[in-house]
Nucleic acid binder design. Structure first.
Length: 427
RNA sequence: GGUGAGGUGGGUGAGUGGCUGAAACCACCGGUUUGCUAAACCGGCGUACGGGUAACACUGUACCGCGGGUUCGAAUCCCGCCCUCACCGCCA
C-alpha cells in the first residue's frame, strides 16, 4: 500500500496518476482528503492520549514511593486519580483504534500510483507496444496445428488424463513433453544464475501474513487455492514466498541489489474464464514458472527494471521465439504495480499472442506492507523498492515452441535447449 | 497426533510486580593511542507513531512471539493463540 506520508506529500500527483486506472480525479481526491483528515484526528488524539499516559506513569511511580514511605493515605488519593485518568485513556484508545481501522481500510483499497510513463487506458487493447516483432513470423505448413493437437499427436500432454486425476486445467505432461518442460526450467534457472540471481526453493504454500505482504490479499483472494484446515494458501506465483524472505527486514545500503530466483509451480483458480482463451495450455490452474525478484535502492529501481526486461528479452531471443513487449496501460496494470512490461510470444499454430512474462516495479508499495526497509548512511530508515518478473512462465512457452517449431517431420527443439535434452526432434 | 522445554534488542543471554527500553558479553560504527594485517581504551549502537528543529539537538508514548485480562503500576502474574526445539508415534 501507499504510505500516508507519500499521499500527504504527493496528493495531486497520486490523484492524477490514478486517473490512468480509471478513477475520477475529484472522487479520489475526496477519498484522500478524508484519509488525511482521519490521520490528523488520530494524531491529535494520540498527543492528548500520550500526555495522559505520561501522567499516569508518573503517578504510578509516586504511588510506589509513597507506599514505601508508609504514606497510605496519599497513595490512595493518587490511586483514585489514576483510575480517573485510566478511564479517559480508554476512550482515547478506542478512538485511536477506530481511526486506525478507517485509515487502513482506505489505504488498503488504493492501488499503486502508476508511473509517469504508464498510458491511460481501460483494458489490454490500450496497452502500448514498446517493441514490436518486425521480422517475419515462422512460416508453417498449411496444415499446421495448434499445440493441443500437437500434444496429442506426439503424446506430450494429456489434458483428459489430468482432468480425470484432478480436474480441467491440470494438464499431465508426459514423455518428451515432460522432458521439454524440465529442459526449459533448467535453462531458465541457469540463465538467472548467470545474471547473478541466487537460486532458492521456497515453500509452495504460504500463510496469511505472507499473502498480505505481497498484496495477494485482500485484493486477489478468489484467485488463490486456500486450505481452510491449515489456514494456508497455495502460491499463485513464486513472487510470494521469494519476496517474503524480506518481510520485516532492514537492509544496509550496501546490500543492494538483492537478486533471488526460484522455480515453482503456480496455482491459480482463474475463476470465471471460459472459451477459446482457455484452450490447451493457454490458461491452466497449475503451471510452472521461474521467477526473478530484485530488492532495490529507490534510486536504482527503474534501471533494474530495464535490466530485468532485457534479461527476459534475451531468453526469448535465445529460444528463437517471436515476441513483443507491451507497456501496460493503467486499466490493465496490477493493483500493486507502478509500471509493468508484459512479454507476449507469437504462437503460430493458433496465430495468437500469448502472455509469457510480466515484469514489474512495485516501487515502495509492496515494501510498505512487507516492512522492507534499509538504513542510509545517516542512519535513517527508508522503504526499499521491490521488482519481479517471470523468466519465464512455462505452459505458454511450451505451447509456442510446439507450434512455432513444428515441421512435417516433427517438432525441432530450439538449439539452446538441446544440451538439456537427449533428443533434438519430437516425432 | 503425544510428551517435555522454550520464545527478551543483529547474536549469546540476565532479568518473577515499580529505580528495566531493558544488565553483561559478542558483533557493528566513530574516536584515541601504540606504527603494523592486531590489541588496548573511550564513546555510540532497536523500531513505530507523535511533539520539536531549516536540519540536528531535545522530547512524549507504544513495543520483551501475538491477542486479551489482573493491578495505581507488568518483560515479570493469569487466560487464549501462534511459533521453535527435543523425544516418541506416523510417514516420503
Amino acid at each position: 500500500m501507499l504510505t500516508l506520508k507519500k499521499i500527504i506529500a504527493e496528493l495531486d500527483f497520486i490523484a492524477k496518476s490514478l486517473t490512468k486506472r480509471g478513477y475520477n480525479e475529484d472522487d479520489i481526491k475526496v477519498i484522500l482528503h478524508e484519509l488525511i483528515s482521519h490521520d490528523k484526528k488520530r494524531k491529535s488524539n494520540q498527543q492528548a492520549n500520550d500526555d495522559l499516559k505520561s501522567k499516569m506513569k508518573d503517578f504510578s511511580g509516586q504511588i510506589g514511593k509513597l507506599y514505601k514511605e508508609g504514606k497510605q493515605d496519599e497513595a490512595s488519593k493518587l490511586k483514585a486519580e489514576v483510575v480517573e485518568i485510566k478511564e479517559k485513556i480508554k476512550t482515547y484508545d478506542e478512538n485511536d483504534k477506530e481511526l486506525k481501522i478507517k485509515i487502513d481500510d482506505i489505504l488498503l483499497s488504493i492501488p499503486n500510483a502508476p508511473h509517469n510513463s504508464v498510458p491511460h487506458g481501460k483494458s489490454e487493447e490500450d496497452n502500448e507496444v514498446v517493441k514490436d516483432w518486425t521480422d517475419p513470423f515462422p512460416i508453417l505448413e498449411k496444415d499446421a496445428l495448434p499445440h493441443w493437437e500437437l500434444a496429442k499427436k506426439y503424446n506430450l500432454i494429456d489434458f483428459e488424463l489430468g482432468a480425470f486425476i484432478t480436474g480441467s486445467g491440470f494438464p499431465l505432461f508426459r514423455n518428451k513433453g515432460s522432458k521439454l518442460k524440465r529442459a526449459l526450467i533448467n535453462f531458465f534457472l541457469d540463465e538467472a544464475e548467470k545474471a547473478g540471481y541466487e537460486e532458492i526453493r521456497p515453500p509452495l504454500m504460504v500463510n496469511e501474513a505472507s499473502a498480505l505482504a505481497t498484496g495477494q490479499l485482500p485484493d486477489k483472494e478468489g484467485q488463490m487455492y486456500y486450505m481452510e484446515k491449515d489456514d494456508l494458501y497455495l502460491i499463485p506465483t513464486g513472487e510470494v514466498p521469494i519476496t517474503n524472505i524480506y518481510r520485516d527486514v532492514i537492509l544496509k545500503e550496501s546490500d543492494f541489489p538483492q537478486k533471488v530466483t526460484a522455480y515453482t509451480p503456480c496455482f491459480r483458480r482463474e475463476a470465471g474464464s471460459y472459451g477459446s482463451d482457455v484452450k490447451g495450455l493457454n490458461r491452466v490452474h497449475q503451471f510452472d514458472k521461474v521467477e526473478i525478484v530484485q530488492i532495490s535502492h529507490p534510486n536504482e529501481s527503474y534501471k533494474l527494471l530495464d535490466q530485468m526486461v532485457s534479461h527476459v528479452e534475451n531468453l526469448l531471443i535465445k529460444l528463437e521465439l517471436p515476441y513483443r513487449i507491451l507497456r501496460l496501460c493503467g486499466g490493465d496494470l496490477g493493483f500493486t504495480s507502478a509500471l509493468t512490461y508484459d512479454f507476449e510470444v507469437y504462437s503460430a499454430g493458433q496465430k495468437k499472442w500469448l502472455e509469457v512474462s510480466s515484469v514489474s516495479n512495485f516501487e515502495a508499495f509492496q515494501s510498505n506492507r512487507l516492512k522492507l526497509r534499509y538504513k542510509d548512511r545517516d542512519g535513517k530508515i527508508h522503504l526499499a523498492h521491490t521488482l519481479n518478473g517471470s523468466a519465464l512462465a512455462l505452459a505458454r512457452i511450451v505451447a509456442a515452441i510446439l507450434e512455432n517449431f513444428q515441421t512435417p517431420d516433427g517438432i525441432v527443439v530450439p538449439k539452446v535447449l538441446r544440451k538439456y535434452l537427449n533428443f533434438e526432434i519430437i516425432n
